[in-house]
Structure formats: structure tokens, C-alpha cells
Simulated scan of single mutants.
Amino acid sequence: MSILEDLYYGNLRPNESMKSCDPRAKEINKKLSDAMQIYQTSLSKDDFEQLEEMLDWVGELNSMHTAAAFVEGYRIGALMMIDVIKHKDF
């Protein structure tokens, strides 16, 4: 199957396979997990659910930003290819 077919059929989902190369990512993820455990035990059930809802909104916003950055990067890459081909000396 070609990459275009994978894209068409929804088999290409880079946001699901991306992992940060930054060594701090694992440490930050652990801190977030630990903090959520503390909040879950110290907040009321309703307050914790509100916190989870807010974090879901942050996640949605981050996803939108990531999608926009992906599209912009793709556009820039395509423009670079056009520029290379356009100015190629044969």
C-alpha cells in the first residue's frame, strides 16, 4: 500500500506514534503522573473531575496546535521541494 493510500484509508496517524526525543519528557511525564495521584487523593471527587476535564481541554488544545504545526511543516516541505525543482539546473 502506498503512503497516499494509507493517508486516504486513515492508516497514517503520526500523532499516535510520535515520541519526544527530549530526555526531559520522561521526567516531566512522571512528575505529572505523581501530581495527578496527589490531587486524586487530596481533592474532592467533584474537584478532581473538574481538574481532569480542564486537562482534557488542554490536551485538545495541544492536539489542535500539533495538527496545525504538522500541516504547516508539510506545506513548508512541499514548498521547498517545488523551489528545488524550479531552480534545478539541467
Rank of each mutant, 00 (worst) to 15 (best):
M1Q: 01
M1Y: 03
S2A: 00
S2Y: 00
S2E: 01
I3C: 04
L4C: 05
L4F: 11
E5M: 10
D6A: 08
L7T: 04
L7I: 10
L7A: 06
L7N: 07
Y8P: 01
Y9A: 08
Y9M: 08
G10Q: 03
G10L: 04
G10K: 02
G10H: 00
N11H: 05
N11V: 02
L12F: 09
L12E: 03
R13H: 13
R13N: 15
P14V: 04
P14E: 05
P14C: 00
S17N: 13
K19R: 15
S20E: 01
S20Y: 00
P23A: 11
R24P: 00
R24T: 09
A25G: 03
K26M: 13
K26P: 05
E27G: 06
E27V: 14
I28P: 04
I28T: 01
N29M: 09
N29P: 04
N29D: 11
K30C: 03
K31A: 08
L32G: 11
L32K: 07
S33M: 08
D34T: 05
A35G: 02
M36T: 02
M36C: 06
Q37E: 12
Q37F: 03
Q37D: 13
I38D: 07
I38F: 06
I38E: 07
I38N: 02
Y39T: 04
Y39K: 06
Y39S: 06
Q40D: 03
T41N: 04
T41A: 09
T41H: 01
S42W: 00
L43Y: 05
L43S: 01
E49L: 05
Q50C: 08
E53K: 12
E53V: 03
E53A: 14
E53L: 05
M54E: 11
L55R: 10
D56M: 10
W57G: 13
G59E: 06
E60L: 14
E60D: 13
H65D: 15
H65M: 14
H65E: 14
T66N: 10
A69G: 10
A69L: 14
F70V: 14
V71Y: 12
E72I: 12
E72A: 15
G73V: 03
Y74W: 12
Y74Q: 11
Y74F: 14
R75T: 09
R75D: 10
I76T: 10
I76Q: 01
G77Y: 11
G77N: 13
G77C: 13
A78W: 08
A78Y: 03
A78N: 08
L79P: 02
M80P: 04
M80T: 12
D83R: 02
K86E: 14
H87A: 00
K88M: 14
K88H: 15
F90A: 15
F90V: 12
